[in-house]
């Protein structure tokens, strides 16, 4: 009951989805679309568990007064504001709230403002921070000691120099031959050796995904059930 039923469910849903993808019959299409919709309904419930875990973690930090516990209030504050403004669209029907300019839902001006002026800038800044760390790590780790390391370093340098206009500008000013060579070399690397390596990797990953999917559907791979055998 605890392990067999999930295995049967996984097998049934896996087989149904794999077979209905190949059949053009209208019933087959209906089943396929209905099951995808079911998955889209079931999936968000997992988010509740994720939020519960986050709340539990930060609540514990506040309760135990661990280091920097005060900042956990910011997590709750940010989350609650977004949820309060984004979810209760039914409040838009209250004339008083509309009259004072308050609207709710994902298209609410306050929600959009918070997204545009808080979420997006912080997201972009967090990722741009990586530019500094990547540069510092590359400076320490990149050494052309072997052929492989030299190739990696060379390809990275050509792609970086070819990516910026100043690369071509300096080349054209200094070298009497090969106009715009850095950007042409970059494009050739991306379109040929890089693409062939990526294709090889994608093919390998795809074959792995298919074999793993078959193992999961047939119940050979059961690690997603967690716990110990017989539980």
């Amino acid at each position: 009951m605890r392990r067999q039923v999930p295995l049967v469910l996984c097998f049934a849903f896996g087989i149904v989805m794999a077979l209905t993808e190949f059949s053009p019959h209208q019933w087959s299409k209906w089943i396929n679309e209905e099951v995808i919709d079911w998955a889209l309904v079931i999936g968000p419930f997992a988010l509740v568990i994720a939020i519960a875990t986050l709340v539990q973690t930060h609540w514990t930090r506040i309760r135990r007064r661990t280091e920097h516990w005060q900042y956990s209030y910011l997590v709750f504050g940010g989350m609650i504001i977004m949820l309060l403004i984004g979810i209760p669209t039914f409040l838009n029907k209250i004339p008083f709230l509309s009259k004072i300019g308050l609207s709710f839902g994902q298209k609410s001006p306050i929600f959009v403002w918070l997204f545009n002026h808080v979420q997006v800038p912080m997201d972009a800044t967090m990722f741009s921070l990586l530019a500094f760390f990547i540069a510092s790590a590359a400076y320490r780790a990149f050494r052309a000691r072997t052929l492989e390391a030299t190739l990696l370093l060379g390809a990275a340098l050509i792609v970086m120099i070819g990516n910026v206009p100043i690369g071509d500008f300096i080349w054209n000013a200094v070298m009497p031959f090969g106009e715009n060579l850095p950007s042409d070399a970059r494009q050739w690397i991306l379109d040929n050796p890089n693409l062939s390596a990526r294709r090889g990797i994608i093919l390998g990953i795809s074959l792995g995904v298919i074999s793993q999917s078959i193992r999961i559907i047939l119940g050979i791979e059961r690690s997603y059930l967690g716990g110990v055998e017989g539980e």
């Binding site: 896996g14 993808e21 099951v35 999961i216």
Partner: peptide, 19 residues
């Protein structure tokens, strides 16, 4: 395990033809 098994089953079933 029931919802997880269903989600993984659907994902695996969809992955085979689509990949």
């Amino acid at each position: 395990r029931y919802p997880i098994a269903i989600l993984i089953g659907v994902g695996s079933g969809l992955a085979i033809p689509n990949v």
